[in-house]
Amino acid sequence: MDGNIIELNNVTYQYPSGAMALNGVDLKLPRGKKIALLGANGAGKSTLLLLLNGILKPSIGLLKYQGCNYRYKKKDLKDLRRKVGLLFQDSDHQLIAPTVYEEISFGLCNLYDDKALVRSKVEESIHDFCLERIRNKSPHQLSAGQKKRVCLASIIAMQPELLVCDEPSSNLDHKHTEITFKILNKLQGKGKTILISTHDVNRAYAWADVVVLMKEGEILITGAPNEVFSNKSLMEKAGIKQPILVEASQALWPDIDQTEFPKDITAFKKLLNQVSCADLS
């Protein structure tokens, strides 16, 4: 599972209004990893995600999927969009069908002509995402958490290799955020690459294998969470706060090495005990 699933070489994107959304972006997305894209509002995260799915075409630069250049002919785009699934921030922008069952079938119908195959995949997806009770309901009558699950199910049903999620936990409470990330983790466990854009630094720190930090259409740094989040000045430059565990660790132990940052509260407690015991002795 080595190598990069997508590479961006010097990608620039300018909106028709003249606004520069991305400016000379070079980025490599490693296959099979959990990647978090961070940046303040207007950093170009959503534009980048739309470029990955081939919805937008770069003004300058190249995108490569598994080493092959993106091509924007209808047939090539269809092939690309099958492999790169895109989950939108606002579920209402994605839901089109009158029932959950039909919503999940929408992408599959565009992909396959065999109705029996589509039906079996829809059933499988409904089972995997525990949507049995709401399968005949209108997506607009669902709660935000259920809507997000339906959107995810409709994309996962198409079996993409890379799942791109624009703020998957937006509008969700803690419980539904946990459910959503559990699903994402499960998918990553099956070998899929997951890329999310988020403002939740604590979640990104605990969850991601790779963190990409953006500012005003440019990539500031790409690396492991410990490496990225330990760089306080860069975080400030991007207009993002450090995760609470990193901030607390740096405040308590200024000389702490970035590899020693605790990943969760239990590790933090353990570290705190160790240091306290060492101080006493």
């Binding site: 739309l50 799915n53 919805i55 269809k78 969009r81 099958r82 699934g85 895109l86 939108f88 922008h93 994605q94 089109i96 069908a97 069952y101 039909e102 079938s105 929408f106 992408g107 599959l108 119908c109 565009n110 992909l111 109705k115 589509v118 039906r119 829809v122 399968r135 005949n136 409709s154 994309i155 198409m158």
Partner: peptide, 19 residues
């Protein structure tokens, strides 16, 4: 919505499958 549908391979057909 149009963008979201295109990302799910919207061709020029609007097909849904019913149970």
């Amino acid at each position: 919505l149009q963008v979201a549908m295109e990302s799910r391979l919207l061709d020029d057909k609007f097909d849904f499958i019913h149970p």
